[in-house]
Write a protein that binds this DNA or RNA. Structure first.
Lengths: 125, 125
DNA sequence: CTTGCCTCTGACGCTAGCGTCAGGTTTTAG
DNA sequence: CTAAAACCTGACGCTAGCGTCAGAGGCAAG
């Protein structure tokens, strides 16, 4: 039989989350407003986060950079921190994966294009 | 001695440009407003383009997808269709190149991240 | 001539992820 | 105790690449 002793995790405030993840405080509040990041509240109303919130915010940034909306991220969060995933969510994961791959290909093509221009302008000053 | 006979190029109207490049008519007008695409005008005021305008619009789309603004594209256009490039423009070209490469790397990291999640949700339904 | 499609010039709307003030409370350092 | 720093809730602003409607003119076909 296993006894779980809750290891009284140290909670951090919004400023620490923001600095830790390299975003603004405003951004973190925005994530909460969008339902991405639920925070506990201190008696006085201040937001309290667990340390892994920092990693989570970094993850949000990465997904934003990949072109996902906050809406999509909320829909996919269950795949992330819970074991529960239904068929629809797995399909969405794959769809986003394909979108990102296509975007990478587009960017690579643009890069090749630019490189050709650079080669011309360098040999042809 | 060479005599150049101007091969009376057939000019096309905005609709044909838009359909050819797969964008909206509104988009083409917007490009003109941003100084990306200069058009002749018919006596009645309609825009007239050369056929290579289609390829140019496709190029704009590619650069937009790569994260360049219309402003940047106008600044870099001289590198493109003229032989004239100064040091500043070549530096900007390289800077944009680096931005795109960094973006590709970020997207690849996001893709790898998503793939790990997909692997977990697939083996762990 | 008129029907129907294309084009024109404004000009306002939209989205998404925040930035940025305003005005007030809370926590912390000295 | 007090001042600074951090936090709170609204709420408006911003950017960029268009979408979209309004109202009016242009152009080939039948």
């Amino acid at each position: 039989m296993t006894v779980t002793v809750a290891a009284a995790e140290r909670l951090i405030r919004i400023g620490e989350v923001a600095r830790g993840a390299g975003v603004s405080v405003r951004a973190v509040r925005y994530y909460e407003q969008q339902g991405l990041l639920i925070a506990e509240r201190s008696p006085s109303g201040q937001r309290l986060y667990r340390q892994d919130a920092i990693a989570l915010v970094r993850f949000f940034q990465q997904m934003f950079a990949a072109g996902l909306t906050s809406r999509r991220i909320t829909e996919l969060l269950p795949c992330w921190d819970a074991g529960h995933t239904d068929a629809g969510q797995r399909a969405m994961l794959r769809a986003e994966r394909e979108r990102i791959q296509a975007k990478i290909d587009d960017l690579q093509a643009a890069l090749d294009h630019l490189d050709k221009v650079i080669a011309i302008t360098d040999t042809h000053p």
